[in-house]
Write a protein that binds this DNA or RNA. Structure first.
Lengths: 79, 79
DNA sequence: TTGTGACTTGCAGTCCGTC
DNA sequence: GGACGGACTGCAAGTCACA
């Protein structure tokens, strides 16, 4: 695969997604099922290889039952 | 143009972007300059016609000097 | 100053696998 | 359970002329 890797935001998404998914006790496969997104794609997102669109971000958030913006928010809160 | 139009999240982005840009007193052209994104592309985003990727979202946020997640946050805060 | 249609190109997103 | 590869389709990305 080895896609392009330019944005810092994908790293944040990657980390958040992996953490939240783990907290919910879901496998990538299970989440893929909930979101109706391919499992290999989820894998790519969690490794920061994929440049996700906001439509897809929304589907991920819906599958996880949370607000989309929580997935791209920085862990350490500053302005 | 009339691109596809499925996500609710783009409506939120559209509204937020237009509001915030106006608050900063920027024209689409001026913002396009700051973000290094084409003016017509921004126009499409502000009308919810474009399914923006998070890399692009990041560039918009950088141009506006704010956190990316603020652009996709719902105005009225509930769950 | 912004909206819009038309266009090309590269990659988002899916599906089949293996390790 | 997850990382990773190959091949494919559709659409995001990016630009233009004009209203």
């Amino acid at each position: 695969m080895k896609r392009t890797h330019p944005g810092a935001l994908r790293e944040i998404l990657a980390t958040n997604l992996r953490r939240i998914r783990a907290e919910k006790g879901l496998s990538q496969d299970a989440l893929a099922d909930l979101c109706e997104i391919d499992r290999t794609y989820i894998s790519g997102v969690e490794r920061g290889l994929r440049n996700v669109s906001i439509d897809t971000l929304e589907r991920l958030a819906t599958g996880l039952r949370l607000e989309p913006w929580l997935l791209i928010r920085r862990p350490d809160a500053d302005r």
